[in-house]
Design a protein around this nucleic acid. Structure first.
Length: 129
RNA sequence: CCGGAAGAUCGGGCGGUCGCGAUGCGCUGCAAAAUGCGUAUUGAGGAAAGUCCGGGCUUCACGGAAACACGAUACCGGAUAACGUCCGGCUGGGGAAACCCAAGGGAAAGCGCAACAGAAAAAACUCCGCCGAUGUCUUUAAAGGCAGGCAAGGUUGAAAUGGUGCGGUAAGAGCGCACCGCUUUUCCGGCAACGGAAAAGGCACGGCAAGCCCUAUCGGAAGCAAGACCAAGAAAGGCAUACGCACGUUCGUAUCGCGGGAUGUUUCCGACCCCGCCAGAGGUAGGUCGCUAAAGUCGUUCGGCAACAAACGACGCAGAUGAAUGAUCGCCGAUUACAGAACCCGGCUUAUAGAUUUUCCGGCACC
RNA sequence: CGGAGCGUGGCGCAGUCUGGUAGCGCACUUGUAUGGGGUGCAAGGGGUCGAGAGUUCGAAUCUCUCCGCUCCGA
């Protein structure tokens, strides 16, 4: 596999993560994660970005997604769990937050989810779809 | 120097590291496509916005003519592919000036409207009022009443049938005159809107058309989720006519002729374009094309007051599709506004921190 | 992205075409009837007509420009 991120594109997949996943709230974003309901040939993790109208106009929404993308590109290959779908929802503070603080928040959130999933064996997660 | 008016340009810059979209080239590969890697180039705006107008493009079966309906526009001339845009001018209004603002045709084609107030709201009239010369009555007379005359003044209102002055009269009145306004005619200037002059008319023709309307001009409708192709998947047939096979049923092929069909409605013409009719089934979002080179941008010369046009030269300038621009370091500058292409152009409108610059007007000071 | 429609008291709606008085139902307040409450009866308060310009003597209404919301679309 390459280190390129695979995106979630379908609305049903987004809703699946929101309903069945775990949630970690930080000042800059909300991170949700759940085991994927689709099975791939090679097990991968996927990421989806959400910036709603509450963030602001089109410029603000694009900017929020870009900053989150920049952080995820560095951290996800290291910290993500294979076979999981992640959804990251932007909050208003992400626009003015310093990069180092955002970096720490995401790292903390990812390890929190990783610890919870370590309780369950990995093969059990891929078979529940 | 201070205050003001009208424009024009820009709207963070330079360099390094990691990463993203697109295109070209090379490698990978038997080959093509795809994937991956490397490398080079390139990658949001003046409004990309609102979707308010005008076009291109695509589909609706093609073209032409007439009438009606609906909608839009509206001083004049020009520019333009076109426009409700732009330029120049006219008229009216505002400002001390530079300059700014205006949907600014027609109310003697017709219909309609004007609450409240007021005598009266479009047909003319007389509530208060003025006069009462003339005629007549009362009376010694003055005077008063009536017949009658008048519309100057008053009241209401957004709006009341020319304005000012003089003459005139019983009181008055364009009743007469002067000036201004208005209407008509003629002449002159101008492509025209319109302007100027003269003569005549005693004034007839109130307002609203962003009320219906009239006149002139223009307009078919829907929109790239238009539309074209591919892949995948699914279903059920019945009826009419003709032909083949045929006793018939069944099966297969076809829809000439006849008949029917239009994109506002109706009618007509041409061409001969499309179509058997009824009913049913599946699909809900995969791919490719459309998709960016265009009424293009910049410069010079020339024509024009200008909008703009012509010629020559140079440039090659986003094409995503869960949707590409971020992170970080250094320097300058600065507490950086409004804000992100989605088929493409020309405008309009709205949002916008700040910076640069041109021309003009007024005031003050100096020469 | 494209195309339609709607904004009027606290809530749901008339009135807009055809300009002049903003009205209806529920809710609210007060009084009355009852031992008390509900129902009933009587009276009352409450509206920048989404915002800003224009036309007009006069605008919720006509025209233009903005703001917000809702719906539709291979």
């Amino acid at each position: 596999m390459s280190d390129k991120l695979i995106l979630i594109k379908k609305r049903p997949d987004f809703l699946h993560v929101t309903r069945n996943g775990r949630k970690v709230v930080k000042s800059g974003f909300v991170l949700q994660a759940a085991s994927s309901r689709r099975s791939f040939l090679t097990p991968v993790y996927r990421i989806g970005y959400t910036a709603s109208k509450r963030i602001g106009n089109a410029v603000c929404r694009n900017r929020a997604k870009r900053r989150l993308r920049a952080v995820c590109r560095v951290l996800l290959p290291r910290e993500a769990v294979i076979g999981y779908d992640y959804v990251i929802i932007a909050r208003h503070a992400v626009l003015e937050m310093p990069y180092q603080k955002l970096f720490k928040e995401l790292k903390f959130a990812l390890t929190e989810i990783k610890q919870e999933t370590d309780d369950v064996p990995l093969f059990a997660k891929n078979t529940n779809e």
